[in-house]
Every structure is written in C-alpha cells, then in structure tokens.
Design a binder for these strands. Sequence first.
DNA 1: AATTATGATTCACG
DNA 2: CGTGAATCATAATT
Length: 443
Amino acid sequence: MDDQARIMQSIGGVSLAGHSVQGGMALPHGHDGTDGDGRKQDIGDILHQIMTITDQSLDEAQAKKHGLNCHRMKPALFSVLCEIKEKTGLSIRGAQEEDPPDPQLMRLDNMLLAEGVAGPEKGGGSAAAAAAAAASGGAADNSIEHSDYRAKLTQIRQIYHTELEKYEQACNEFTTHVMNLLREQSRTRPISPKEIERMVGIIHRKFSSIQMQLKQSTCEAVMILRSRFLDARRKRRNFSKQATEILNEYFYSHLSNPYPSEEAKEELAKKCSITVSQVGSPSSVTRFSIVSNWFGNKRIRYKKNIGKFQEEANLYAAKTAVNAAHAAAAAVQNSQANSPTTPNSGSSGCFSLTHSGDMFLSMQSLNGASYQGAQVGANVQAQVDTLRHVISRTAGYNDALGGNTMYSPRGINTNGGWQDATTPSSVISATEGPGSVHSDTSN
DNA sequence: AATTATGATTCACG
DNA sequence: CGTGAATCATAATT
C-alpha cells in the first residue's frame, strides 16, 4: 500500500491526471503518442512479464512484482483498467444499489422492541413486562409465576444480543479483512475504491440478512414462549383476594344497579391491580373487560342464587359500612335533614332487606353505598334517597312479608331486569337457612 | 376423585 | 356494543 501510494505519487506528475480525466478514451489514442514506440515497447514488456510471472519462483515473482509496481506506466494502466471495469460493471449494478427498508425487517424490529427483547436493557426485569404494565395502567404486576416467563424472556434476550453482537463483530472483521484484501490486490488488480465500497455494501447486506434470520427466530421463540406462558387463554388465574374484595364491595354497594360505568370499571381495574397478569392476549382482552367479565359473572350468579350470596352480601355491606363508618354516617345524617326524595336511586337493600328485622343491616349496607358514592364523588342526595327507599321498602316489605317477594315491587323500572331478577326472594327465605343465621329471624 | 368456585368465552338479543 | 345465558376449562376445596 505504501508502495502504491509512493508510486502513484512519484509518477503522478507524468500522466495520471490526464488519464483520470479522459483516460478511457485516451488509451486507444495513446498509441499515436509522440513516444508511441517506447510505450509500446514498455507495454509489451509488462505484458510479457505478467504472462510469465506465474512460472517464476516466488522470490523472482516478488522481485518482478516490485519491478512492475515501480514501473512508471503502472499507475496509468491501473487507472485505465479501473475505469474500463467501472464502465462495464456499471450496467450490472445500480439497480440494487439502494436497499429500501425491508418492511419485514421493520416488523420484526418493532415486535422485538415491543417484546422488550430489543431496545435498551432494563435492570433485571423484562422490558416487556414493564411495558405491558405501563400500557395497562401501571399497577404492580402480581405475577409470581411470571418470573418464570420473564426469566425465559431474559434468556432469549441475552442470546439474541450475544448473537447479534457476534454477527456484528464478524461482519466488521470480515469487512475489514475483505477491504484489506482488496486494497492489497488493488495494487495488482484494477480495483477502484468505489468497488471496495460496493463490496462492503454487499457484505453488509449479507450479514443483515443473516441478522434478519436471527431476529425472525427470536421472534418465533418469543411467540412460543408467550403462547406457552401467557397466552393460555383458558388458563384461569384467580384474582387476588384484595381484588375480589374491591370488586365485591363495589358490587354489593351498587347492588341495585351493579353496572359500573366505563370510568368505574377503569377505576376498579386500577384499584384491583388487574393487569396483564390475567390477560393472556393483551390485544384481545383488556383489563377493562376483565372487570366486565367479573361483573357479568357476578350478576348472573348472584341472580341465579341469591341465597347463596346472602352471607357474602351482608358481609360486604357490613364491611363497607365499617370502613366508611364515620364519613358515611355523617353524610347520611346531614343529608337526612334536608333532602327531597328521588325515588329510584335505588337501593342496595335488595339483599340485606330480606327480612324486616334487617333494617339496621340494610342501613349499614346503605351506608356502604353512600360511602362508595362519596368515594366516587357522588352526591349526598343519592345516599339520602337510597336511605329513604330502603326504609320505605322495608315497610313495604313488612306488608308483603307474609308472601314472597321481599322487596320486589320496588323495582325501579329502569333497571327492571336486574331488579326483577331479585324478585324471587321467596327462594331466599325458603332456602336460606344461612340468611336467617345472620339477621333474618328477627321478626 | 368428585365437587365447587370462578374466570373466560361464545352466542343471541336489542 | 353491552348484556344475559350457557358453557368451557381450570383452580380450589372436599
């Protein structure tokens, strides 16, 4: 290489410039140059040497090579040959010069990024889990067995990165090697820098295609992992105790109309820390719909067998009442003084009211309701109303006591369906030993 | 092992 | 589209 530079330099003054400008064309005409004979002679000489060089011993060849390199005509020939080669080669390439961003590759990249395999290393935890948690509201992911998943994911991630690095390194090594080789050979072969560049491009493309394979298989691995661990749609995981508590509280304190609004669901989901943990396929199921599922199941199951839930209802009613004791009580009292009644808000009373004696209890539950309301920011009014209703209802119930329907009549038509369902109270009292255990019996 | 509890899914309805 | 109802499939309990 040094030789090369030196030679080029030393002879540069002679004719290199001229060649580079119109070299390709000049060559043919060069024959008629003033010093045509000498040049011809030289060329013949050189050609002869080239032809015979392979037969020589190594040393001789080396010597000759050096001789050739030092020849004053060498650079000129070289550049001319380069240009000719350039011209012929140009047609071949050019088409594939630019590599458009492969959509496939982009997809893979995106996915790896989303799964947390690519992207910046996060300490310990899998980026995927973090991302998922963040996406779903950021509650703590109560995944215990998810650690398994995360471990595997980390493993994949590590493999991916080491492999990627390896490829990168290999690519670089190979590239420099080839470049060196080409540069070396460019002393004896017509290889232009441009061509080297092109070669490098080709190499990079090759390696990137290999990388794509790596990415693809990584993606596959992640998918398999996912499907095995998280995706098992039917893999049921019970909610945490806390979560069911919260849901139940809401349910029983809104028993009259246990249809949480979107916001309420959102709120509940957040509160319950319901996150990815039970969402197998995040795309299809959101934690939001988990709450919906829960309420759907709860409603129907409650309705199906109210008696069975009596206990639970009382329990939660009491609980909420206790929890909210002060606030709720105060609120209720205050409101009691001045509120107009709006019949309808309904009552949580449905369950606890079962028996007349339950007034107290019902009140409690009511309080629970009001508490909840307060939490959400509901108005006092509603609480009052509910209270009144309960009371009136109890009264009504007393009347109807002998019969069945405990409070059925009160069905606020709006939610008649739900209310109606509760109607078969007779069932309750009949089947309900348990109910009586609590509060029933009394009168 | 049988039973119950429970979360999720499917389907029909309005 | 959100529900209710039926159903599935698994977790928990007996």
